[in-house]
Design a protein around this nucleic acid. Structure first.
Lengths: 223, 223
DNA sequence: CCTGCCGACTCCTCGGACAAGCTGAGGGGT
DNA sequence: ACCCCTCAGCTTGTCCGAGGAGTCGGCAGG
C-alpha cells in the first residue's frame, strides 16, 4: 500500500480522504457533508479526529462548519500555494516571469513616479553601489532597488507578484554570485543607473527596454 | 475584554490569537510552542480547542505538529490567498498585470511554438470567430484563444499566473461586453489574427507588440 | 568517545457529556 | 389562504479524562 512507513496521523489521513471525496464531486460546491458523528462511524475513527480533519480543511478554505447547521463545501479544490508553485518552477521560468513583470512595471513607473519615488530610487541605487558586488548583502540591496521600481509603478498586484518571487530569486542569485561573480561591476551599475534615469525622465519605452535588457543578461548567464 | 459579542467559535479565536503571537515574533521561525496543555491553561480554554486551533493553522501552513516533539512554527505569516488578492485588486491593475504576462508570453511563443501549438492557435481563433461577439460564450472562446498563446510560450509559471487571472477577468469582461459591445468585431478579430500570424512567423517583437496593443485597447475601454 | 537504555515529556486518539445554535414542521392567529 | 411564533430534533462547539505512541535528552556501560 505504502512505499515507506506511513506515519501520517489519522487526522491527516482523514483530511486527505475527505478532500478526495470533495474533489470527486461526491459533495458538490455548497453541499452539506454528513454529520461529524456519521463521518466518524463511516470512517471508523473518533469524532475528535474527524473534527480536526475538518479544521485542517477549513484552514485551507475547502470546508466551512457552522454550528447547528453542518459542514459545507466552500471550494472544490485547494488553491495551490503560490510558494509551492514557485519552488517547483525552474529558475529560468521564474526569471522570464520576472522580466514580464519588471519591464511592464518600469514602463508604468516612468509614467507614474512621484518625486518621493525618485528620491527612494536614488537612495536604493546609492545603497546598491555602496557595498561590494558579492554576497547576500549585495543581493539584498539589488532586490531593494528593483522593488523600489515596482513601488513606483503604483500597481499593488504587480508588487505582490514581485514580492512572491523574491525568496526564490534570492536563493538562486546568491548561489549564482558565489559561483560566477559579476564580470564588470561598473557596467552592471551603469545599467541600473540608466534604468533609474529613464524612469526619472518619464520615458516608458526606454525604461522597459533597460529593465528587459538587464534581466535578459542575468537570464542568459544562467543558461 | 471583547468589544463585541464573540460570535466566532473559541477555536477560531484561539487560532487568531496564536497567529498574532507568531507574527509578533514571540515564537521565531522553527521555534517550539508551549505544550497543548500549557496553552490551554494559559488561554483558559480546553485542550481540544487548542488542538483544533493548531490544526487550522497547520492547514494554513503556519504550524507543524510532530508527535512526541511538539508544535513548531513553519512560517511567520499566512501566504495570502492569491484569489483574495485578485478580488481586492482593481480591474485596471489586473489588466496591467495581464498585459505584462501576455506580451512576454507572446514573444516567447513566437520563439518556442511547435507545429501542434500553431494548430491549436488556428483552431482557437476559428472558434472565437464562429460565435457572435457577445455573451459569456464569446468571453470563454476569447479566453481560450489567449490561453493557447500562453501554452505555446511553454512556461508553466506564466501559464499558472494567467489561469489565476481568468476568473477575475472573466467577470469583468462579461460585464463590460454587456454594457458596451465591441464596436468593430471585424477589427477586433483582425488584431487577434495578426497576433497569431506573428507567433507563426516567429517574430517575438511583433507578437509582443500585437498582444500589448490589443490589451491596451481593452484597458482604455475600461478607464 | 561512542553506544544503547530508559524515563520524562509531548502529541495522538478515543469516548462521553453537556451547551449553543440552526432548521423545519406544526399550531395558532389574522 | 397566508403569516408568525413556538418548539422539538439535529448539528456543531466545548470540555474532560484516559491510554497509546513517538521523540528527545540524560545516563550508565563499553
Amino acid at each position: 500500500m505504502s512505499p515507506t512507513v506511513q506515519r501520517h496521523p489519522l487526522a491527516a489521513q482523514t483530511a486527505a480522504h475527505l478532500l478526495t471525496r470533495v474533489r470527486s464531486g461526491e459533495w458538490p460546491l455548497g453541499h452539506k457533508l454528513p454529520g461529524e458523528t456519521a463521518l466518524a462511524a463511516q470512517l471508523g475513527v473518533g469524532r475528535s479526529t474527524v473534527r480536526e480533519a475538518i479544521r485542517e480543511l477549513a484552514g485551507k478554505g475547502v470546508l466551512d462548519s457552522r454550528q447547528g447547521a453542518g459542514v459545507f463545501v466552500t471550494a472544490l479544490d485547494v488553491t495551490e500555494d503560490w510558494d509551492c508553485v514557485l519552488r517547483r518552477a525552474s529558475i529560468v521560468s521564474v526569471l522570464e516571469a520576472r522580466i514580464a513583470i519588471e519591464a511592464e512595471a518600469a514602463a508604468l513607473a516612468a509614467q507614474r513616479r512621484t518625486p518621493a519615488d525618485l528620491r527612494a530610487l536614488r537612495r536604493a541605487l546609492a545603497a546598491r553601489l555602496a557595498g561590494r558586488p558579492e554576497g547576500e548583502a549585495f543581493v539584498d540591496a539589488d532586490t531593494r532597488f528593483h522593488r523600489t521600481v515596482l513601488v513606483a509603478a503604483h500597481n499593488d498586484l504587480l508588487l505582490e507578484m514581485f514580492d512572491s518571487f523574491v525568496p526564490r530569486v534570492h536563493r538562486a542569485m546568491t548561489e549564482l554570485l558565489r559561483v560566477q561573480p559579476i564580470r564588470s561591476p561598473h557596467e552592471d551599475h551603469a545599467r541600473h543607473q540608466q534604468l533609474a534615469d529613464a524612469i526619472a525622465a518619464g520615458d516608458p519605452v526606454a525604461a522597459a527596454e533597460r529593465s528587459r535588457a538587464h534581466l535578459t543578461t542575468v537570464k542568459e548567464t544562467l543558461s
